[in-house]
Write a protein that binds this DNA or RNA. Structure first.
Lengths: 337, 337
DNA sequence: ACTATATTTGCAAACGATTGCAAACCGACA
DNA sequence: TGTCGGTTTGCAATCGTTTGCAAATATAGT
């Protein structure tokens, strides 16, 4: 065991040439005689040579691996994004180092610092909810390591990003509720990640405004998009006896929990209150009733992010991409037949 | 931009000592005077020094990254396993390179070969369904790169593994069906990955035998565990009018699809036929009726795999771990109140 | 004070590749 | 035969560390 792999100088010895020649031959430099090139390439194949990526990385300062940081690994949205990234970079010959921040700033900082030591040529990241200080990313950029953000943006320039069009998504969902006859539509807004929730709230408000309905005080509720908070929200509405005829949730977990509370308490969905969520979790379609939601195509987001990364690695200018979302209409919001 | 990081020799220059001394001081060798060590460490911190992992890897031949190969990235089981692995190795200072084989042998081979170039110190893998030739893994072992298998095993020794106890899982599930009063219990067996399905089938047969029931010809059906095949299976049973009073599926996707067909055709679950699946997909609990299934704790499997890997990296002997599963009983199999 | 021993230090090679520069080689032409 | 231009080649440095070994310095014992 622990058999050594063949190196460039093994080949050189066998052929009685210098390592320089072998290196050049293998890299297709025109500084080697055609005849020699052939022999080197052939011998290399025979000996099962493969360049040592570590050595190459040390010499050239560039690895063939890309880093990806997500808040959570086991969230469908991120999983799909990872799959998307992987599918693209694999074909380009890159590896993917994955790390999760757990949404903690401190951990994210450590990860970024670790990646900054030259392990990766670029970083694709969705920043942690907790993060408000971006200097660790700033350092990366200063070191010449390109960054592509997705999902959540950072107020930093000099980097690419790809996000879904939250405004449009919320706008369309709200329109849909209006079309179903809803007038008193509430919005459950998320906490943290200001820009994202802002965009969604704006979309909601715009749609309401366009329909000539004024959003009254108390119609927008801000909380974490967890099941617990969703449940609490529903109970609060029930307690106040203030049930709207439609609700746009900024997350499916909260929506689902709220739906359960409503159903248990005799509030019918969608007849009494129509519900639309955000993110389109894989289990939405199995809920009773199936939950309408906004699909964000995280797999495609991942692919785009990866493409931007490859561009950036080759020195391309940063770009910002916004992808359309799609409203998936299911039972939970269909008042009309 | 592209600012260089401080190196060991930057520190050496500043302190008028040799790089050797700095290196030793930083690595806690006892070959440096205590006083010097202090100064070096302090200066290193001041200059924001962090060792270049690439250089270290080249010199020592050992990286601080572990490779992980899964058939599919976006399958709950694997996602959880990844999360488990990550949680353990992160604390040990390792990075995780992730690659998916798509269940294709050829792609798996390329991944393994790429990782074998010294990029990783160890590989945690669930082999592709298609794979029957294991020489690429053999090569890894021969190179001294430890391997930890999970989920699906390989007929190779010299490596660690961690799997769930499929036999016990199937046995318990079958017992449960028997306890609910089922006598004519069918088993939907998977295709490919022989060892896994074998274990499950054996568990099923053993439980039946222990209950004094002979499994008749035709009671075990072999097919892919996809929704499509599950649907086809249910239709076949309906067509033959041969509905058992219980079915143990080797996968939840097939079970779910079959349940839908049954329900559509007036076959009641669990009254007419009780159903238990395998894997406990996250949406099982939202189906109507909620699907009983066997939880395999992939997160824990990932953690164990990671621990075995760390052991192996430190030269520990290979070990094989088998984890218990847990039967999650839901509506779909509860005939008794 | 002087040697023997223990403690610290630095030189230089090595890991496996890449690359600027100088040297060797080639045929051709005068 | 000598020189020139072009093509091929190899030397040696380099990337940032680690580490065996020899050299330098400090400590101790007599």
């Amino acid at each position: 065991m622990a058999s050594k792999s063949t190196t460039i100088s093994d080949i050189a010895k066998r052929l009685n040439v210098s390592t320089s020649t072998v290196s050049r031959a293998l890299n297709g430099s025109k500084l080697v005689a055609e005849e020699v090139r052939k022999r080197v390439v052939q011998e290399a194949k025979k000996m099962g040579y493969a360049p040592n990526p570590i050595a190459v990385a040390l010499k050239t300062g560039k690895t063939k691996t890309i880093g990806m940081i997500v808040p959570l690994i086991n969230r469908n949205y991120f999983v799909e994004a990872i799959a998307g990234v992987e599918s693209v970079i694999y074909d380009a010959g890159y590896d993917l180092i994955i790390a999760s921040s757990g949404n903690f700033y401190e951990r994210e900082r450590k990860i970024v610092e670790s990646l900054a030591q030259g392990k990766v040529v670029g970083v694709i990241a969705a920043v942690a909810a907790e993060t408000t200080d971006y200097s660790h990313y700033r350092n990366l950029i200063d070191k010449g390591v390109p960054i592509v953000m997705f999902d959540r943006l950072m107020p930093l320039d000099g980097m690419s990003s790809v996000v879904q069009d939250d405004f449009q998504g919320a706008y369309n969902a709200t329109r849909h509720l209006l079309e179903q006859g809803c007038r008193k539509i509430f919005h459950y807004r998320g906490l943290q990640n200001v820009s994202m929730w802002n965009a969604r709230e704006k979309g909601y408000r715009q749609a309401m405004a366009d329909a000539g309905i004024t959003v009254q005080k108390g119609w927008v509720h801000t909380a974490l998009t967890t099941p617990e908070e969703g449940e609490r929200y529903a109970r609060k509405l029930l307690a106040k006896g203030d049930i709207p005829d439609g609700i746009l949730f900024s997350g499916d977990f909260a929506a689902k929990a709220a739906m359960e509370v409503f159903t248990e308490n005799g509030v019918r969905i969608p007849e009494d209150v129509a519900i639309v969520g955000f993110v389109n979790e894989p289990w939405d379609k199995y809920l009773t009733p199936p939950l309408s939601s906004i699909e964000q195509f995280p797999y495609d987001i991942g692919k785009e992010a990866a493409r931007l990364m490859l561009r950036a690695i080759e020195g391309g200018k940063p770009r910002k991409i916004v992808l359309d979302t799609e409203l998936i209409i299911r039972q939970s919001s269909k008042k009309l037949k």
